[in-house]
Simulated scan of single mutants.
Amino acid sequence: MAREMTKNYYFRKFQCGLSKKDTAKLCFKSVRTVTRWDSGQPIPPECRRLMKLYKGHEIVSLSDNWEGWKFNHGELVMEGGIRITPQQILTGYALIQLGANKEREHIKQILKIARILKRY
Rank of each mutant, 00 (worst) to 15 (best):
C27T: 12
L26Y: 10
T91K: 07
H73E: 09
I107Y: 02
L50S: 08
E46F: 03
Y93N: 13
R115Y: 00
Q41N: 14
G92K: 06
K55F: 15
K70I: 10
H106G: 05
R32K: 15
V34R: 02
R32C: 12
R104Q: 06
L98P: 00
I96L: 13
L62R: 15
K13E: 06
W66G: 14
T85V: 05
M1K: 11
C47V: 01
I116N: 02
E46C: 00
M51Y: 04
S63V: 15
Q97L: 11
D64A: 15
G81L: 06
T91Y: 04
Q97T: 00
A24L: 14
K108I: 02
L111D: 03
R36F: 11
V60Q: 12
W66Q: 14
D64R: 15
T35L: 14
N8Q: 11
S39F: 06
S19K: 13
P45R: 09
D64N: 14
P42H: 03
K70M: 13
T33V: 12
C27N: 05
I84A: 07
K20V: 12
R12M: 12
K52C: 09
Y93A: 08
H57K: 10
C16Y: 03
S39T: 09
K20G: 10
T33L: 12
L18M: 10
F14Q: 13
Q97G: 03
N101F: 02
N72H: 09
I82D: 01
V31L: 12
Y54P: 01
M5P: 09
A100M: 04
K102A: 08
N101R: 13
L18H: 07
G40H: 07
V34N: 11
P44D: 05
M1H: 12
F71Q: 14
F71C: 14
W66I: 15
L76N: 02
M1T: 08
K52G: 07
Q97W: 02
A2T: 13
G17L: 07
G80Y: 01
F28L: 08
F71D: 13
K13P: 05
L50A: 03
M51T: 05
I43L: 04
T91E: 02
K7C: 07
V77C: 01
L76W: 04
Q88I: 00
F28P: 05
R104P: 04
R32W: 14
L62F: 15
G56P: 01
M1N: 02
E79Q: 10
N101L: 06
F71A: 11
A100I: 03
L53T: 10
K21N: 12
I113F: 00
K108H: 03
K55I: 10
I43K: 09
E46V: 00
N72V: 04
R104N: 02
I107G: 00
K70T: 10
M78V: 01
C27L: 08
I110E: 01
H73K: 14
M78W: 00
L111I: 08
